[in-house]
Design a protein around this nucleic acid. Structure first.
Lengths: 150, 150
DNA sequence: TCTTTTCATTAGCCATGCTAATTGTTAGCA
DNA sequence: TGCTAACAATTAGCATGGCTAATGAAAAGA
């Protein structure tokens, strides 16, 4: 496919991200679990990215950002630090409450999107699913990436 | 299409937004024009959302947030306030420099995505384009929404 | 043992969401 | 005319989440 066609697709895509993010933020405000926290919990739990460093690497964020993120999760009781052999690091684990928060946050986020995309047609829903799957794969995102990752 | 299929699509989609946003933020840091600013400039210019209130309404953000966003644009010389009849409002306009910034920011953002999605196949690129178009339409996003909007 | 490397935290910057309260202007009506 | 109500925007203040630079503390290696 010509690069021009790809560029056209990306022109559309990059403008979509901000409004989607804003809409999802609204959902997150209801559940009290932000996108970054939700994603961190998922990655810690499903992908066993159980140290600050691994979390930062997988999420492609800086170590200090990951550190602060986890600090927030621990304070909210969504994650806890387990001591390991190396006392420079602490192994992370998601709590029961954390798992419940992930469930709730995902449901709320999906509900917001469902409302937002009422106008999509049958064919477009199928396309969305296929495309979302492809992008998730490229980005290494989601619980199902557990097997394909690392 | 069954709701379950839609839910599956949305499960994938909502997890994609954060990593995409982070990747685009990196591009924005290079150009010095953030996603919110870029979008605001586009909307002011192409959609004639030329007051704080209209900008906030179209972007679905609060009026104070829009106000501060525009303040930043003006300070950077990307937009300016033109006095109108009603002295409670000022009409907004994008400067030459602002238009150039939009161009540069879009190019940088598209380049980042192009790298990110190297692994997509032909068919997936076609799907992405169609899907992105549909979502952009639903979200009322992009210059081409000018005719379909308001 | 002493130095270097590694992992994480702290401090501090900036942007962008929000709500509540304030300011300033216009419009409406007695 | 002049008071009041409605409206548009700003200011103030809170929270989150990116970043870099500097610091601490533990492990590894010479």
């Amino acid at each position: 496919m010509a690069d021009l066609h790809k560029t056209r697709a990306l022109q559309l895509l990059h403008r979509i991200v901000l409004p989607l993010d804003r809409a999802l933020q609204a959902a997150d405000r209801q559940t009290g679990c932000s996108a970054a926290q939700l994603q961190a919990l998922s990655v810690i739990h499903y992908l066993k990215a159980d140290t600050i460093g691994r979390l930062a690497a997988h999420e492609r964020i800086s170590v200090p950002t990951a550190s602060r993120l986890v600090e927030g999760l621990v304070q909210r009781g969504l994650a806890r630090r387990v001591e390991g052999r190396d006392r420079r690091t602490s192994v992370l684990a998601v709590t029961e409450q954390g798992l419940a928060a992930v469930e709730a946050a995902c449901a709320a986020r999906e509900a917001v999107l469902m409302d937002l995309f009422e106008g999509l047609g049958e064919e477009e829903w199928r396309g969305l699913r296929a495309t979302a799957g492809a992008l998730a794969r490229e980005l290494g995102v989601g619980p199902e990436a557990a097997r394909a990752d690392d």
